[in-house]
Design a protein around this nucleic acid. Structure first.
Length: 468
RNA sequence: GCUCCCUUCGUCUAGAGGCCUAGGACGGAGCCCUCUCAAGGCUUAAACACGGGUUCGAAUCCCGUAGGGAGCGCCA
């Protein structure tokens, strides 16, 4: 069997965490089975669909590395096809024109609700032959009135719906445009989708869609309904949480590998394994192992994964992202060698690239003022001789390398009869402006001798000036 | 209201009737290491929603209860 999956977002907003997870699972399933992954943009709601949203979805998928073999297909470009299929259904008596007005429908709904019934269309136009003057009709699908529709869901198991719970849904609006449940079926049929993997919220739509497949004489695909993703508080995902563009994660300094790895473990697992390379995900992914219950986002775990991927990432590749982050805070950094050296020095102490950029400014530009607390504590008169001594040793060093720098520091420390930290920390504040940096020797190596000496002089002057 | 779905540490999860004194991970706590910040190492607290069955035996199967969620549009 040819496995064909699709991701079918409607471009009414950005690609958020929930959508990205759905896309990921579709992609994984196709990859796992040497199938094809199709992207389809469900833009039939012209009011709410926007081009920027389409672009955001495309960008998000690209950033996450979710590539597709076919598409993007746009439903708005397939209206002719939907019209044709609707006409066919009409002709076969499997659909009919309905002339009920919105007011009538609203009233019907209100009455049903008042009777504590489930609101549903009662089929009053089913047998109508004559058009109603002045009313543009909609087309309704003639849903079976009895029997059951069984969804043999790959993650939920067997779910049974009574057809009498379903009503005759509208497949074409009065302006002739098709509606969601209809276009989905036509497309899934035409695109020969073998597996529909989508959010839980569509489980209730599934029997309707299966009935349309049936009417069209086409075999329905297999279905797999994924559990929802909740916000960290267990409530529905909102803009505050993860319902922001996945691109926001890039801006916040996250790596796509981390986001993907985080997402794959939401509702899916492979024993106790937490870290998955793309290859491993593909190799192990199986819908059988998908959970049935909703899961809440845990930002701390995402952060941990991000840190993991920063820590184990290739310095050269991370350097490019770091440069991007630095540029965002107005710091120019062009030397790839230096950037990579900074990454190597920082990669085990940054949870995000944004954080790394913030902590690395001093490598690329002069800092304005010392951090007051750090300066008060470390840049004091009594350390003046130590700093002068170490400055002289640095100036005399034949080679500017971390090992040599460290030796010079040690020599100074013993000559001054200090503890290592007593000299290292003031030195750190002198060259970094604050009390936090990678190990002092590698920090100095990256900074270079000229800048190190210049900043030491600056500190020396600052201390003297302050004492005076 | 009706229909459908879900329920293991705070969170993500392992668990397919005995391997469970319920395992791992994030986060938390403690200790160690240490030139700062980290990283790392070790230790630790923390859960089978509840009630009935079935069975020699249930986190695992069945039924109920409670709680949570989704859907019920000329939205997707």
């Amino acid at each position: 069997m040819n496995i064909r999956t699709r991701f079918a977002p409607s471009p009414t907003g950005f690609l958020h965490i929930g959508g990205a997870r759905t896309a990921l699972f579709c992609w994984l399933y196709a990859r796992r089975h040497d199938g094809r992954f199709i992207l389809r943009i469900e833009d039939t709601d012209r009011e709410r669909s926007t081009q920027p949203a389409v672009q955001a979805i495309l960008d998000g998928m690209q950033w996450l590395g979710l590539d597709y073999e076919e598409g993007p297909f746009y439903q708005t470009q397939r209206f002719e096809r939907y019209r044709l299929v609707a006409a066919q259904l009409l002709e076969q008596g499997k659909a009919y024109h309905c002339y009920c007005t919105k007011q009538e429908l609203e009233q019907m709904r209100a009455e049903q609700l008042a009777r504590k019934q489930k609101p549903r269309y009662d089929g009053r136009c089913r047998e109508r032959r004559e058009p109603r003057p002045g009313v543009q009709p909609v087309v309704r699908f003639k849903n079976p009135v009895d029997g059951q529709t069984v969804v043999d869901d790959l993650v939920r198991g067997r779910v049974v719906f009574d057809n009498r719970e379903l009503d005759d849904l509208i497949i074409a609006r009065s302006d002739g445009t098709p509606t969601y449940n209809f276009t989905v079926v036509v497309d899934d049929m035409d695109m020969r989708i073998s597996h529909v993997i989508r959010g839980d919220d569509h489980l209730n739509n599934t029997p309707r869609q299966m009935n349309i497949f049936e009417a069209l004489g086409a075999p329905p695909p297999r279905y797999a309904h994924l559990p929802m993703i909740l916000g960290p508080d267990g409530a529905k995902l909102s803009k505050r949480h993860g319902a922001v563009s996945v691109m926001q994660y890039r801006e916040d300094g996250y790596l796509p590998e981390a986001v993907i790895n985080y997402l794959v473990r939401l509702g899916w697992s492979h024993g106790d394994q937490e870290i998955f390379s793309r290859e491993e995900m593909i190799r192990y992914f199986d819908i059988q192992d998908v959970n049935q219950s909703a899961s809440a986002i845990n930002p701390e775990k995402l952060l941990w994964l991000n840190q993991h991927y920063i820590q184990h990432g290739d310095a050269g590749k991370l350097a490019a992202e770091l440069a991007w982050q630095l540029a965002r805070i107005g710091v120019r950094a062009e030397d790839p060698e230096k950037l990579a050296a900074v990454v190597r020095a920082q990669q085990e102490r940054a949870k995000t690239l944004k954080e790394m950029a913030l902590a690395s400014r001093f490598f690329f530009e002069e800092f304005a003022d010392y951090d007051p607390k750090a300066a008060d504590k470390n840049l004091t008169a009594d350390i003046l001789p130590g700093l002068e001594d170490v400055r002289a040793r640095f100036a005399a060093l034949a080679e500017w390398k971390a090992a040599g720098i460290h030796q010079a520091l040690e020599a100074s420390v013993s000559a001054m009869q200090l503890k290592f930290g007593k000299l290292a920390q003031p030195l750190r504040v002198a060259v970094c402006g604050g009390g936090i940096s990678p190990p002092i020797d590698v920090t100095l190596e990256i900074l270079g001798r000229d800048i190190t000496l210049a900043r030491l002089d600056r500190a020396l002057r600052w201390i003297s000036a302050r004492r005076a």
